[in-house]
Write a protein that binds this DNA or RNA. Structure first.
Lengths: 82, 82, 82, 82
DNA sequence: AACGCATAAGTAAGAC
DNA sequence: GTCTTACTTATGCGTT
């Protein structure tokens, strides 16, 4: 029964879309929360962009910690990069 | 007491930063969840980019969508695009 | 002589890196030029996003465009989107 | 004369679009050149991803050189970041 | 109100 | 061949 198959397929498609939309809503909510914290910090006299930079630096530092690659080091030495 | 003030200020700054980092972690978790749903949909035979487009279309309000379409059509006609 | 080999290798590595950096600079220059044209068009009263869409549409070959449209339409119908 | 105005407008729109397309072609050409250099370096026995990382690090270092902001430093000290 | 930036999305290339 | 990762592009947000 072709109709049945189409209907079931359509239902599953719709379900995927709605799950995605739900998750994206939650994500947008968190983005708003983050925005609020920045606003609150600003209200307390802190500079938003600088906080942003700090957060970003801490993230990068974490990433960099892993990146102690021997090959990279060798290449850097080869081209006289410290 | 100047020292006290500085310490308290520093503590508040740190608190803001940590709240932001916590929220961003949760946000990243949701982003990963969304990615998983797309993968699952793909596994079920659906086309990811098309689902993405649907989700994006549903987000836009109708008026805006119609307006954008009209402008695009006008530009296409102006340059002789079909 | 091991030292000689290492030096030559290092020199070639450095040369590759510098060629890449030079090319990337030129590329960045062109990106800036493109941005300028968009700004100029906007100043003349045209809508940037719509121009962007036109450029992108002209890039895609027709077959692909038709195919994507058909899939999108099918999904929209499946979930009862107009 | 309304018709005249429309024609002139359409011509200018088309001109902007074609300028953008021309610049994007050149940009794509440079991207291809860069790819070629990576391929050549790989053929000479160097590791592509590592070169990529070097190039990226040198770019970041340049950016960072400018970034000696007093406020940033103050914030970092406040939260005990080195 | 516009400008630039920063994040987010989409796409394409490379690795396993 | 799939899967992840990096790059490019696009949109929205904060700032001036």
């Amino acid at each position: 029964m072709e109709q049945h198959h189409d209907t079931a397929t359509a239902a599953r498609l719709k379900s995927y879309i709605e799950r995605i939309e739900r998750l994206e809503e939650e994500k947008a909510g968190l983005a708003a929360d983050i925005k609020d914290v920045y606003a609150e910090a600003k209200g307390a006299g802190f500079d938003g962009p600088t906080i942003r930079k700090i957060v970003s630096l801490r993230k990068k530092d974490d990433a960099k910690r892993v990146e102690e690659d021997a090959l990279l080091k060798a290449y850097k030495e080869a081209i006289g990069m410290v």
